[in-house]
Amino acid sequence: MGIQHEQEIVGKVKKMVASQLGKPEDEISLESAFIEDLGADSLDLVELVMAMEDEFGVEISDEDAQRIITVQDAINYVLERRK
């Protein structure tokens, strides 16, 4: 995977969340929590994690996945792993 700029990652994560959860992108902010704010259920979260793994070429353990609560958490996870 090539080095990706933070902005690019933010854009990609938002787009992914929008398409998986059927929400317009402008309704998704960095603080949005997947379950409380975006109406996701536990199955949506599993699929979202799978999509992130595919998109960013990372492997996310079940334990790590449980700590991804908001859109910002997801972005941070990718940024840390990228280093």
Binding site: S19, Q20, L21, G22, K23, G39, L43, D44
Partner: peptide, 8 residues
């Protein structure tokens, strides 16, 4: 149906 339900 809404797009999310369609995808699922």
């Amino acid at each position: 149906m809404d797009p999310k339900e369609i995808r699922r």
